[in-house]
Design a protein around this nucleic acid. Structure first.
Lengths: 337, 337
DNA sequence: CTGTTAGCGCTTTCAC
DNA sequence: GTGAAAGCGCTAACAG
């Protein structure tokens, strides 16, 4: 490997500690010395040894990502790769490395986090797929280790997180449908227990109320999961009694199932919207109107939040502002609505 | 942070050096001691400090991935996320961390590699998107830094690499088409200068020859890139004179362009195949017959090759076998063929 | 403003 | 088979 701090010190005619101070831009070093040392660094092609720096007490400039390992989801939904890219763009600009790992299950994830922390290789964690009652969150809090969540935090005041404004996003969808002239709008959601389902449902309700339309319980269905099957089941339920003229779903997969049910039963003329703007929705005919959750920006913001947290003194972290970001969504109109 | 080597030593009633030897499974430690130390490690939840280990002379158990930052490609083609997952599965099993970074351009990539190397944070590099005359490869060779390539190596003897057998893959496609009764089969490829184009073209030629069918130059077209536009252009060229009854393309995007051209010009009844098994191809109607390149396994193999290389003594690396893997492809028949 | 010194956690001779 | 001790490259008191 290349030159070390001693070489630089010798070359510049100063002590290693001075070089170290220059590296971290310590204010008590004279301009002249800084210049000389920086010259030496360039001259020798010096890059600080991250391991040594980290060992000696600096927090390692590396973040660890925790990803779910759901092949299907990863494949259909570009969310993760986009979020990873967003994180990468920001972190790289701030000089941070990124570690990633796909986990089979929650147990696995905790294991990784433990390794991240104890290896001393990582100074903060980004969770890309928070569940309800996420044990990873508990573990990180217990370990008092800096982290940020992409998604809704169970305890939004004491956790750093980024998320879409899901209420707003669905409000927008329903408003859009109303403006297109739809009057009887159904709602097809994921599991009720999920915060994201609740938020989007509330957005749906408020959008209707805001325009003076009644909420019709028969047009609302929450599935057991986010699969096509649940979408089909939802279609069966919602399209049973009163006929809606549009259905807003909280997930593209649900929408695909719904469309499939409609096709199989010869039901036509009902507008459908999804969430996540997945590849299939773009290319199928008719194209699926969907909400782009802006995964890239979610990633960037998450990285920003975490790095700011890390670079804030321990003592001032309490009143760090902000501890979260809302990232705007974007409705992408296509043929289904 | 958790327990350190001293804590473990004390707990097990041995010296730190003994613990270190147990960690690395040194053969001169008695079974009894090993057992006792391992117990202590579990008991205390000990995880070795990677920074310290690395500082003290061990090569850091971390690999660095270099990814292209092409949003479109990343989005349409699940190759990268799958390859990353494959790498992750294997590397984790061997106890390696993974660093990733998306780069804007070649300049960027070299910069990252430099950082990877000089920071002492990384002991090997995986290149996921090798270009022709890749400067990253040159740089890594010049630095004498271990790396492996996913894709074709310019110098396959002195480089570690994994790739599909592209000749074989296209041979299979054409044989499949012949067996389905197609007789006039066209070829629509990417840029001629790419090795992958050449290999697949040769597979095409040999498959025809093997069955005694003539190669008709008019049915062959190589585009300037791998875009839909090139696919449309290819359609125009190939479907101009002699009418083929099937066209094998080297990329789903080309196939989409070709299908679009056919649709716009009312041409029907021509079988079409693609490569990469992208999401759009799966969900469009008719579904695109395509070749799955097995990105997951490409990733796993790449990680395996690199880790084996790293764990081989410097002196024995010359005669390391193997220095490459061919990963089988899988033809996925759908409606277009 | 700058240098000296001790030490981060681990590995590795060198002893025994 | 195991322990003692030196040192990897860097940082952070503590001096001055």
């Amino acid at each position: 490997m290349g030159a070390n701090i001693k070489d630089v010190a010798k070359f510049a005619g100063v002590s290693p500690s001075t070089v170290s101070r220059v590296i971290h831009d310590n204010s008590r070093i004279s301009q002249a010395t800084k210049e000389r040392v920086r010259n030496a660094m360039v001259e020798l092609g010096y890059v600080p040894n991250a391991a040594a720096s980290s060992l000696a007490g600096r927090t390692p400039r590396t973040l660890g990502l925790v990803l779910p390992n759901n092949p299907g989801e990863l494949f259909k939904n570009p969310f993760f790769i986009n979020a990873m890219r967003g994180i990468s763009v920001y972190a790289q600009a701030r000089g941070y490395f990124l570690l990633y790992s796909f986990s089979r299950d929650e147990e696995d994830e905790i294991q990784f986090i433990r390794n991240y922390i104890n290896s001393g290789w990582v100074s903060g964690v980004i969770l890309l797929a928070a569940r309800k009652d996420d044990r990873c969150v508990d573990y990180l809090k217990l370990s008092d280790f800096p982290f940020v969540l992409i998604g809704h935090a169970a305890d939004p005041l004491t956790t750093c997180w980024v998320d879409n404004d899901n209420f707003q996003a669905m409000y927008q969808v329903v408003t859009y449908l109303l403006e297109k002239g739809h009057r009887k709008i159904g709602f097809l959601g994921g599991p009720e227990t999920f915060r994201v389902t609740q938020d989007r449902y509330n957005g749906y309700i408020q959008a209707l109320k805001g325009r003076g339309f009644p909420l019709e319980e028969e047009l609302v269905f929450m599935g057991d999961d986010f699969t096509e099957d649940s979408g089909m089941k939802g279609g069966k339920e919602i399209l049973g009694s009163i006929m809606p003229d549009a259905i807003a779903t909280t997930d593209d997969q649900l929408a695909f199932g719904l469309l499939k049910y409609m096709e199989e039963n010869g039901i036509e003329g009902i507008a459908v919207t999804g969430f996540n703007n997945t590849v299939r929705g773009i290319y199928q005919r008719p194209g699926l109107t969907s909400v782009d959750v802006n995964a890239d920006l979610l990633g960037e913001r998450a990285a920003e939040l975490l790095i700011n947290l890390l670079e804030t003194d321990e003592s001032e972290r309490q009143n760090l502002s902000p501890n979260h970001y809302f990232v705007e969504t974007k409705l992408i109109p296509r043929e289904t609505a």
